[in-house]
Amino acid sequence: MPRENGRKIIAQNKRARHDYHIEDVYEAGIVLQGTEVKSLRAGRATLTDGYAAVKDGEVWLINVHIPEYAFGTWTNHSARRTRKLLLHRKEIEKLSAKTKEGGLTLVPLSLYFSNGKAKVELALARGKKEWDKRHAIAEKQAKREMARALRYRNR
């Protein structure tokens, strides 16, 4: 069987880009069990409630829902278990320092397969205030209306 090439997206956290100012993005590998990989290959995962935390020099992905594999046996995994993330030591130290600083959190943006290996795109993010969210929505609508007017004018 040939190896997978490229990037196959499994799940995206669109809500994170609405709720947070993204400051920096990291790619991390995930330590998974066999049935978790099979469930991900079926394209089933939810990132909405998930976050990451640095504990004892390791980064952990918490509260990400990967449903149980339908054809699994007693070896099936629990859906919301804590999963270890694989990052370089310097990246972990940098993330640890920034999250201790205050106001910053680690949020998963997307879960995907890159050349056959499961990866997560992790963002160092700062929470938005309510007025920030309203401002972003108004800006997006204004851009959409300008594009629509230009399309109509160019007909």
Rank of each mutant, 00 (worst) to 15 (best):
P2F: 03
R3V: 04
N5D: 09
N5M: 10
G6T: 13
R7M: 04
K8T: 14
I9K: 14
N13I: 15
R15D: 07
A16Q: 05
R17K: 08
Y20G: 06
H21P: 03
E23M: 08
D24S: 03
E27K: 09
E27D: 13
E27T: 13
G29P: 14
G29Y: 14
L32H: 08
Q33T: 14
G34I: 12
G34Y: 09
G34L: 09
E36N: 14
K38T: 01
K38H: 06
L40F: 03
A42P: 08
G43A: 03
T46W: 10
T48D: 09
A53T: 14
V54L: 00
K55Q: 10
K55R: 15
K55H: 13
D56A: 13
D56M: 10
G57M: 14
G57N: 05
W60D: 05
I62F: 09
N63I: 15
E68F: 05
Y69P: 06
F71R: 04
G72R: 00
T75L: 09
H77C: 02
H77G: 02
A79E: 15
R80S: 11
T82S: 07
T82Q: 10
T82W: 11
R83Q: 02
R83N: 04
R83D: 07
L86R: 03
H88K: 15
H88Y: 12
H88N: 11
K90F: 13
K90T: 15
E91V: 12
E93V: 15
E93R: 07
L95F: 10
A97Y: 06
K98L: 14
T99S: 00
G103I: 11
L104E: 11
T105D: 03
P108W: 05
L111Y: 05
Y112A: 08
F113D: 09
S114Q: 12
N115F: 13
A118E: 05
K119N: 11
V120S: 08
V120H: 09
E121L: 14
L124P: 01
K129V: 00
K129E: 15
E130D: 13
W131V: 09
K133T: 15
K133Q: 10
H135Q: 12
I137C: 06
Q141W: 07
Q141H: 09
A142C: 02
A142I: 00
M146R: 15
L150D: 11
L150Y: 15
R151Y: 12
R153V: 00
R153F: 11
R155N: 11
